[in-house]
Amino acid sequence: MTLRLQPVQVATGSYDVDGQLVFADGLLVAVLVRLSDDHNDLAGMWFLEAGFGRVVTTELALFADIDKAQSWIEQRLAHAA
């Protein structure tokens, strides 16, 4: 399984617009959004805006950088396999 990122602008209803679509083997599995300065301590972190299938979670999924976000998504998908 390989992840592919595609930059995207997301209408979150906030200043958090810079995002990445995350595809696994061609299928959309997650939408990540970079948090804006509005979030104080959390600004600059990557937030799991939406997950699909195994990537769905009710917990707060926040990552210091995009690599950590990808590793986390890979782990979730690996459990499914």
Binding site: G13, S14, D38, H39, F47, T58, L60, L62
Partner: peptide, 18 residues
Amino acid sequence: IADALGLTPVHVNRVLQE
């Protein structure tokens, strides 16, 4: 607030900003 409403703090912050 997030733990009471079943939201993430990110969503709560966005709502408060709005």
